[in-house]
């Protein structure tokens, strides 16, 4: 209470979970039995922090949201530090702002190895990579599964589309693995597990 007036507590435990360039801000919900609490999220990029520290910009998707989380991916549009803050609202009552303890930079996002699907179309070796969005490129490494075989590398510009890698020889076994590369943060993921496929018929 402040001067006998109920004060809405500020949200606590702010944190950002970021994976594959999708950034989710979460916090502990403010609970008032029987009431629905709304939250507002705002952000500052490094420019605003340096030159316009008074300026906070309302989040694209969460200027008034119910859930204790907010997808801030569309707010984080540069690879710089971002401050983030949240406050709660109940009717005419508004809490104080809670600010993320440490600024968030998208270059800290977790990059997971991409899911790959290996198929053959006749003698054609085909790979389809997980569609992770326009910021992702893929490095695909493939080889013929035999001693001394040479590794081939191919850059695939986007996921979700079958890509022809090579024309296979009958009776041969081919393997491949892939990693993602994100231009905006100049980082790549670990490689996926290798997957192999075999072509029927007598080896030449």
């Amino acid at each position: 209470l402040a001067d006998g007036v109920a004060v809405l507590p500020a949200p606590q435990n702010l944190s950002v979970h970021s994976a594959n360039m999708k950034h989710l801000l979460t916090w502990s919900p403010v609970v008032v039995p029987g009431e629905i609490i709304y939250y507002s999220v705002e952000y500052q990029g490094e420019y605003e922090i340096l030159y316009l520290s008074h300026l906070w910009i309302p989040s694209h998707w969460c200027s008034s949201t119910k859930g204790p989380q907010c997808d801030i991916t569309d707010d984080i549009t540069a690879t710089v530090q971002y401050n983030l803050r949240v406050r709660a609202t109940l009717g005419s009552q508004t809490s104080a702002w809670s600010t993320l303890e440490h600024p968030f930079n998208r270059n800290s996002t977790i990059l997971t190895p991409p899911k790959i699907k290996v198929t053959k179309d006749g003698f054609h070796l085909v790979i389809e990579l997980e569609d992770l969005g326009p910021q992702f490129e893929f490095y695909v490494v493939y080889w013929r599964n035999e001693p001394g075989a040479k590794e081939h590398v191919q850059v695939v510009k986007s996921g979700g589309i079958p890509v022809h890698l090579e024309t296979m020889e009958p009776g041969a076994r081919y393997c491949m693995k892939a990693q993602t590369f994100v231009k905006a943060i100049e980082r790549h993921s670990a490689f996926s597990q290798a997957e192999c496929i075999e072509v029927q018929g007598d080896a030449l």
């Binding site: 952000y43 990029g45 490094e46 420019y47 300026l55 910009i57 549009t77 540069a78 690879t79 710089v80």
Partner: peptide, 17 residues
């Protein structure tokens, strides 16, 4: 105007990069 603030935030922060 919100849209201008958001667009400028994208421009200025990428200029910083």
């Amino acid at each position: 105007e919100l849209q201008i603030l958001r667009s400028f935030s994208t421009l200025t922060n990428n200029f910083i990069v």
